[in-house]
Simulated scan of single mutants.
Amino acid sequence: MRKVLIDTDPGIDDAAAIAILLNEPSLNVELISCVAGNVGIEHTTNNALRLLNFLQKNIPVAKGAATPLLRENRFATNAHGASGMGSFDFPEAKTALLTEENAVLKQWQILQATEEPVTIIALGPLTNVALLLQTFPEIRSKVQEIILMGGSTARGNIGVYGEFNVMIDPEAAKIVFRSGVPITMVGLDIGRKARLLAENLDALETHPVGKMVADLFRSYDGGDISEGVKMYDPSAALYLLNPELFQTQPAFVDVEISSPLTLGATVVDFDGVFEQADNATICVDVDVEAFRQKYLERVLAIREEVANGTRSSK
């Protein structure tokens, strides 16, 4: 089984990604660490604990960074709602799963104790991951790969060129890309392409977890699903589970941290302009129809007795 740490800021699309990751038998998810991002750290941590109760999973949850390294918080409540989880009525938080250790210390404990390489899948701002790599540089060799939903090969969604997860903490993203750890970037452009359509959400409605995903996405980003729902974090999850769905290309990536015009931009150098060694694998395309089918299959394969009593508040 592949050992995995999930670092996340739940978040509607985070929940849609975590649901399939936790129900993949080839993965051993050892920790969910939370970071401020879509909403504040108290909300993201509580959302992870409530989601685990809904999914009937017992995964330790660690509370992480409450703010970016150097900047003020900027939340995405316009897209995710005040709590971060739209209007879906989750059960109470499973607080017994919350660790005494903070996220960085708990991540380090797991990494330093393991004999096997560990994959980190990062679905939010990279503050926790940067702190881990800076505070405990000796454990970098224990990290097989960081798969991150973040960045863009084109324009952004917060600012002109900034993608949200990178833009919220660009200094952290810069540290991670410069860390020497193998990185796969599943960027904004992939999530914009890999969309679920209204009929796909309808197909999920007959299943308890599918209903949760469908209800969340119907309240996501203002509730407009006429052009499909952008699958940002689920794209990173499906890259881990089904990499054959994606086309990739190596590149050197750096992050702009000073220019007011391009702050948070991920500068993706495919052509060797900067004469720097490649430091990331970039997802450049996705088989959209296969992506939709595989995501639906994975959700509908989750055992149906999960959270049968949970309802939508809409």
Score class of each variant (00 low, 15 high):
V4S: 04
A19P: 05
D13P: 06
E145L: 06
G159W: 01
G264L: 09
F136I: 07
A82P: 00
A290L: 08
K193M: 12
Q276A: 09
T119L: 07
V253P: 04
Q293C: 01
L69N: 12
F54Y: 15
D189M: 05
P243W: 06
N165C: 06
G124H: 03
L55P: 08
T114F: 08
K57W: 05
I110C: 12
T119I: 14
E145K: 07
G40M: 03
N23K: 05
I32H: 07
K174W: 02
E100A: 06
S87H: 04
M1A: 14
L245C: 06
L69P: 14
A251V: 13
D189E: 15
D285Y: 06
G150T: 11
P234C: 11
A48I: 05
V143W: 05
V29C: 08
I190N: 02
A66P: 09
T8M: 10
R71Y: 10
D269W: 06
A236I: 00
E116I: 06
A36R: 04
K174N: 06
K193G: 05
N157C: 04
K211W: 06
Y220A: 00
A122N: 15
T119F: 06
I6H: 07
R298V: 00
E256V: 14
I32N: 09
Q276V: 02
I6M: 11
A16C: 15
I6Y: 11
H43G: 03
L196C: 10
V29G: 07
C283W: 04
G37S: 03
A236N: 05
R192Y: 07
D169A: 10
T153F: 01
E304T: 15
C34S: 15
V253A: 10
T262M: 03
F274V: 07
A173C: 11
A154D: 14
Y239Q: 05
N78T: 08
Q134R: 13
F274N: 13
I12C: 02
S152H: 12
V253Y: 04
